[in-house]
Design a protein around this nucleic acid. Structure first.
Lengths: 149, 149
DNA sequence: TTAAATAGGACTAAAATAGTCCTTAATTGA
DNA sequence: TCAATTAAGGACTATTTTAGTCCTATTTAA
């Protein structure tokens, strides 16, 4: 289904919530309450986002989480790889040594191209875009095909 | 990791093999031998591709599988959805009724936009492109951002 | 010093995926 | 007509991944 994991989905909801809110610092508990996601799960996600430097945390009383930079500078690609690791559709695009199916597999290069395109697409959308009211586009550009012709 | 399932990966290998081969009809056994993928697994994949009308099968002695149309008319998107169902990054983009997180989730529309873009990217690449020698592009176009500005 | 927070990691449960196998149906050719 | 060959369909098992929980340690404000 080529889908994001639930955790990644939650992460976008959490980040949107944080980006929209007036207050700067949000505790894990506040966020759990605001989004309806269970506290331990929220916690887990926030930790991953801190590791990826999407959020900055402060411990102790009055501590919590803050966006590390403006919503417009946090891309969807960053969020996805924070939760799921590198964005790559195929196994062999991640590891350098390729796969065992090496015989007869010269399609790797082309997969890389597709990965790159999708990565760019996700890189170009930011948190700021996500919280913006929905836009219905007239026309959607198709980029990949042009690379081949 | 936003990755394709192994079966989908195999499917592209199998289809590339079929598209490149001289012969028209390939039995499951031939394909298993050519690709190194276990026969029962190959079989499973071929059945799914027949259901999705990517392949046409004939039973009986001298039977086997043939591409349903030219490689240039079989898109990667078609192959992916044959194996994994509809291409959609988020759960709520598939079911119409949305999710329980409905409160505070007005980012759905924007996700749909992203899904659409990725779908288009995958739609624009065909089997013919995959078996073509790798092209290293000068520049990769970024389509999604333009939708927001 | 106490209460409120996060950090880190271990652990369990649930779900999805991969892979196998068996029985039935169709086709060809001897 | 019969035997061999090949796909269809579905059930089943094993494995892996993902989701979710919980515990203990650490940090900070009041």
């Amino acid at each position: 289904m080529l889908r994001l994991s639930k955790l990644t989905d939650y992460a976008t909801v959490i980040l949107s919530d944080m980006a929209k809110g007036q207050t700067q610092v949000h505790s894990a508990m506040e966020i759990a309450a605001a989004t309806g996601i269970a506290l331990p799960t929220v916690s887990k996600i926030l930790k991953l986002l801190v590791n990826a430097e999407v959020l900055i945390s402060t411990r102790g009383a009055k501590g919590g989480y803050v966006l590390a930079r403006e919503p417009g500078k946090i891309s969807v690609a960053t969020v996805i790889s924070a939760l799921e690791g590198p964005i790559a559709l195929t196994e062999c695009s991640i590891s350098q040594q390729g796969c065992e199916q090496a015989s007869g597999c010269d399609i790797r290069g082309n997969w890389n191209l597709i990965n790159q395109t999708i990565h760019n697409a996700l890189e170009s959308v930011t948190l700021a875009d996500l919280i913006r009211p929905t836009v219905v586009p007239e026309e959607v550009l198709i980029p990949v095909a042009s690379l081949y012709r």
